[in-house]
Structure formats: C-alpha cells, structure tokens
Design a protein around this nucleic acid. Structure first.
Length: 281
DNA sequence: CTTTTCTCCTGTATGC
DNA sequence: TGCATACAGGAGAAAA
C-alpha cells in the first residue's frame, strides 16, 4: 500500500527516467483509469501528446508531472505501479496506460490491479500545486509543512486521533500503516479523541509520523532498480521494521505485551494494549 | 459546516 | 477439493 515513502521513491524514479522527455503518445485502456478526468480518456490522451515533462513532483500520496503550465496528476491508489520498460516487454495483465516518448526510449506504463489509482489533467495554481488537489495539506517532508498549524488543526477536531491522522486535508502522506506506527511510537491509542491530547503530545505524534516515514524512505531508496520505477506498493522491505502494524499476537518491542488487532473505520488497527491505553495516561 | 459511512476493485488467504 | 467469504485500503461521494 503506497504511502508517502513509497510514493516518494516512485517520484524519484519518474524524475530520473521521465523528466526532460517529450511525450509522443499515450494509450489509455479501460474506463476507470481516467475517471477523474471528466472530459474523458480521449481528451486526456490528446492533451498529453507533444508535451515535455519538466519535473516529477509530489504532495502526500499524489504525484504529478509538470507539463508547462499544467500538470498530469497520478495516484497509485492501493496497487498502482509505474514501470519504465522497453517497448518489447509484454503487456502486463492490468496495464491501463502506456506513454511513448519522442526519443524512442523506454515506455512509461501505469499498471494497477485494483484500479483505485488513476490519471487526470489539472491546471497548476500560483503555488505550483495542481488546483485539483488544493485541498490536500502539505506532508511533513514539504517545505510548506507548518507543524504548529497542523497541531492547532488537530487539537480542535471532534474526532478520533487516528481518523485525523488519515485525513489528507490536515497532514498528508500518512496511511494506515504509518498511522499505526506513529501512534505506537507515541504511546497513544488511535481511538482517543484528538481534542483530549495536549498540543505537545500532538506535536510529538506528528514528529513520530515524520520519523517513521523517513526511516522507511531510507530503506525504500535502496531497493530502487533503474528499469523498474518501483513500486509494487508492497513496501515489503520495511515490513521487518514495523512494531505494531500487522503484528497482532507478537510481543510489543517495548514492553512485551501482545499486540492486538481491532477493527476501526472499516480497517484494521494494531496497537499495544499496555503502551497505548484507550483512556490515556 | 463537520463528521462518518459507503463504494470502487481483484488477488490472496481463510473457513466450512 | 471447492466454493464462499473476508481482507487489503486511498479518497471521494453520499449520507448523517
């Protein structure tokens, strides 16, 4: 499941293999890949042909290619992959988009088993961010990230803290895995009301989220392959470093109590019953 | 307006 | 073994 670290690895791959190249044509397959582009797939393909990619950028889990004054937004959803491959490589089963370039070099392909991801065209605002994702808050790696502002936003939320961590309009980039890891590091149960936490505690929680994502990025960067702009989304290389997520029945690395799994927001949540009491400390 | 629930999708794992 | 069901979950639409 690509969250911020995985998406950043993909962005670096795009920057290395796609930036500076002139798009010759884009083939879009299926109705879903361009569903967020309301004028439709044909319109999107027509807009992309002949454009030069000037940069690959990211905010939270959204990626985009800068194409002059406009951008091509990309989201990997849960299972999306961006692959750089020779034209001779056989089509993947779930191939949804194929970019060919005027230089005749490798293609860029978007492959997505569950098709939660997709492509869309967007104008870019004065801040350089596509207007379509203006509602997405800066992630902790963004120079525009304002930690104190985020703390204030979280403090006044009338919701549980894990819901707020997953709200991309407050702080972006955090998904289910890193939310659980940050909460475990901070010793906070995700069901606690956000407003019950002190501002310093919220600040520390955000810092834990930032640190665990930095650690994951440090490991993800090493699995980078030149012809495989990552990522199958599996972040398997970081799995052995997880303390709470997916660890039900295993001892908490801090206190030895068995990690439990609970259902929350139609998802699974993992926590240490001792380190992360529901009623706070 | 804010907050919560529902929905989209398909490969893999689990249960009877 | 086979079939049914649960599960993974990002994010926007719809509902509350």
């Amino acid at each position: 499941m690509p969250e911020l670290p995985e998406v950043e690895v993909v962005r670096r791959g795009l920057d290395a293999h796609v930036t500076g190249r002139l798009i010759e044509a884009v083939e879009l397959r299926g109705a879903r890949v361009a569903r967020r582009h309301l004028p439709g797939a044909e319109d999107l393909a027509a807009r992309l042909a002949g454009r030069e990619v000037s940069a690959a950028r990211r905010r939270g889990k959204y990626l985009w290619l800068d194409l002059g004054p406009d951008a091509l937004l990309l989201h990997l959803g849960m299972s999306g992959q961006l692959l750089v491959e020779e034209a001779s490589a056989p089509d993947e089963k779930h191939l949804h988009a194929r970019f060919t370039f005027a230089d005749g070099g490798p293609q860029l392909r978007f492959v997505d088993q569950r098709t939660f991801g997709g492509l869309a065209w967007s104008p870019t605002g004065a801040d350089g961010i596509p207007t379509t994702i203006a509602h997405i808050a800066p992630d902790p790696f963004d120079p525009a990230y304002d930690r104190a502002h985020a703390v204030r936003r979280i403090k006044v939320k009338d919701s549980e803290i894990k819901r707020v961590l997953l709200d991309q309009g407050v702080v972006s980039g955090i998904g289910n895995i890193y939310a659980d890891e940050a909460l475990w590091r901070a010793g906070i149960h995700g069901a606690r009301p956000a407003s019950s936490l002190t501002k310093p505690a919220i600040g520390r929680l955000l810092d834990h989220a930032s640190e665990v994502m930095t650690a994951a990025l440090g490991q993800g960067g090493t699995s980078f392959d030149a012809l495989y702009v990552n990522v199958n989304g599996a972040s398997g290389y970081f799995d052995r470093s997880l303390s709470a997520y997916g660890q039900q029945g295993r001892p908490c690395p801090r206190c030895g109590t068995l990690i439990v799994r609970e259902h929350f927001m139609n998802r699974s949540s993992f926590s240490c019953p001792r380190c992360q009491p529901r009623l706070g400390r």
